[in-house]
């Protein structure tokens, strides 16, 4: 590829995508569906970190919270308020699911920023499952809660009658594009940021450029911390918006 060709000329070696390789945790060989891989390891680390924060951190059940407990309460309060503000009171029934999603994504993104870490949310397989789960459950929920009224989501009654069929087509397409954009937005952001950092880091091999490169990596890292949180927030708030559409299909 281009980077390899470039590498042959200058002695630099760029492997920005190597960090995303899925490898078996023990030995080498084929990756079966059950094989414990680096994905498995980092999924478990993410789960362990979340449990450490939300379960072990709140062990004291203190009226005046410890630091860890107040972080857990902050995460809880933020997500709770988001669900309440966007979907309304009747969306609070699905709060645990949305909280799970948010905590999972934010912890994957943040832990993925550690050196040598594997970012599970940079894989379209992972984000695709998350987005499809949201899409399927929200669609099923919409039909269960509203019956055929749910189709009113695609029939824009506020538009002139002539435009409505065209709008309906657009609405249906946009509805089905949701899981795609939902998943690719997250995975793309994660992958791009990590790859760019790797490329910048690769330039550090040249002594003249290395200060600039390190500066760029540092700046990029700061940006990525921001992106890691924002993408988790965006994913969650979009989930809330879709849930709101399912609960109240009227425009």
């Amino acid at each position: 590829m281009a980077s390899d060709a470039h590498g042959e000329e200058t002695g630099l070696s760029f492997h920005p995508m190597d960090q995303f390789l899925v490898k078996p945790l023990f030995g080498t060989g084929e990756v079966h569906w059950y094989t414990p891989t680096n994905v498995t390891l980092w999924l478990f680390i993410v789960a362990a970190a979340i449990i450490a924060l939300l379960v072990a951190g709140t062990r004291g059940r203190a009226i005046v919270p410890s630091r860890v407990q107040s972080v857990a309460e902050l995460a809880y309060g933020m997500t709770y308020k988001m669900v309440e503000d966007v979907t309304g009171k009747d969306g609070l029934k699905y709060f645990p699911y949305i909280m799970t999603l948010f905590m999972f994504i934010v912890f994957s993104n943040m832990l993925g920023l550690l050196p040598k870490a594997f970012t599970v949310t940079s894989h379209i397989a992972v984000t695709g499952v998350l987005a499809l789960a949201v899409f399927v459950s929200v669609t099923v929920l919409g039909f269960v809660k509203n019956g055929t009224h749910f189709l009113g989501l695609f029939w824009v009654t506020s538009a002139p009658l002539v435009l409505r069929p065209i709008l309906a087509v657009i609405e249906v397409i946009s509805y089905f594009v949701r899981p795609v954009s939902h998943s690719i937005r997250l995975a793309g952001n994660m992958m791009a940021g990590h790859a760019v950092m790797k490329v910048f880091a690769g330039f550090a091999a040249i002594a003249v450029i290395s200060p600039v490169s390190i500066l760029a990596v540092t700046a990029m890292y700061g940006l990525e911390v921001l992106v890691a949180f924002i993408q988790a927030y965006v994913f969650t708030i979009l989930t809330c918006v879709y849930l709101k559409d399912a609960l109240h299909p009227q425009h």
Binding site: Y34, F44, V120
Partner: peptide, 13 residues
Amino acid sequence: STFPNQIFWLIVT
């Protein structure tokens, strides 16, 4: 080829 693996462990997690 890695999709089933990722999806399986993701669902478990």
